[in-house]
Computed example of a mutant assay.
Amino acid sequence: MNSMSLLFIGLMLVPYTAFIVWLLKQDKRKNTMGIVVLMVAILATLLVAIYIDAKYM
């Protein structure tokens, strides 16, 4: 993995974390199942992107 990939992941992690915290505060019914599904989907996408990037470098 090159430095630009790590920089991109780092720049995306901070807003993503802030967005998840904001979503949790907005959830009036405290039903976090949708948030958990969203986090798992984005994490899976991130892992696939890292794997693909490492495969072709």
Rank of each mutant, 00 (worst) to 15 (best):
M33Q: 07
L23Y: 02
I42P: 01
K28W: 04
G34R: 02
K25N: 14
M1H: 13
T32R: 00
L23N: 02
L43D: 09
Q26W: 09
N31T: 02
M12N: 12
V21G: 07
A41V: 12
A44E: 03
N31P: 00
V40T: 12
Q26I: 13
I20V: 15
M4S: 11
V40W: 05
I20T: 07
N31V: 03
G34K: 01
L43M: 12
M33R: 06
A44C: 12
V14L: 12
S3M: 15
T32K: 00
N2L: 06
M4Y: 10
M39Q: 07
W22A: 14
T17L: 11
A41M: 14
A18R: 05
G10L: 11
G10A: 12
I20C: 08
L7T: 13
F8Q: 08
D27K: 07
L43T: 13
V36R: 04
V21M: 11
F8I: 13
I35Y: 00
K25G: 12
L13T: 14
L6D: 11
D27A: 08
N31G: 01
D27Q: 13
T32L: 02
L6W: 12
Y16K: 00
I9F: 09
I20P: 02
N2F: 07
M33T: 06
P15Q: 11
V36W: 05
M39S: 10
V37I: 15
V14M: 10
